[in-house]
Simulated scan of single mutants.
Amino acid sequence: MPLPTDEKLLALSQSLLDQFHAIFGEYPGFRPAHAKGTMLTGTFVPTEAAKELSSAEHLNQASTPVLVRFSDSTGLPLIPDTDPNSNPRGFAVRFVLGPHRHTDIVSHSTDGFPTHTGDEFLEFLRALAASDPANLAGSPLEAFLGSHPAALAFVQTPKPAPSSFGRENYFGVTAMKFTNAAGVSRFGRYRIVPVAGPDHLDDEALKAKDANYLMDEIAARVAAGPVGFKVLVQLADEGDVVDDATIHWPVEREVVEIGTLSLTAPLEGSEAEQKTIIFDPIPRLAGIEPSDDPLLELRAAIYLMSGRKRRAA
Rank of each mutant, 00 (worst) to 15 (best):
D243C: 03
R191F: 09
L206G: 06
E252Q: 14
V227E: 08
A220D: 11
V256Y: 08
T276P: 00
A272Y: 07
D202G: 10
R221L: 04
G269C: 06
R253K: 11
E254P: 05
A223H: 05
E254K: 13
T276H: 11
P198W: 07
V233A: 08
R253E: 11
P283T: 04
A224D: 15
D237L: 08
I247V: 15
V233Q: 02
V242F: 04
R253L: 03
I282M: 02
P281A: 03
V242T: 15
L232P: 00
A208C: 10
V195K: 14
A211H: 14
V255A: 04
I192N: 01
V222F: 06
R221V: 00
V193F: 11
D216C: 01
K230T: 12
L206H: 07
D203G: 14
D293R: 13
V242G: 02
L261P: 01
V251T: 15
V231P: 13
A208H: 10
T246P: 10
L263W: 01
T264Q: 09
K230E: 13
D240G: 06
V241D: 06
Q234N: 02
V256D: 01
A223S: 13
E289V: 06
I277F: 12
A236K: 13
V222Y: 01
M215I: 13
S291T: 10
G269D: 08
D237G: 11
V222H: 02
V242H: 08
I258P: 04
V227N: 04
H248S: 11
Q274I: 05
D293P: 12
E217N: 08
P198M: 07
H248G: 05
V255N: 10
Q234C: 01
I288P: 02
T246V: 13
Y190W: 15
D237C: 12
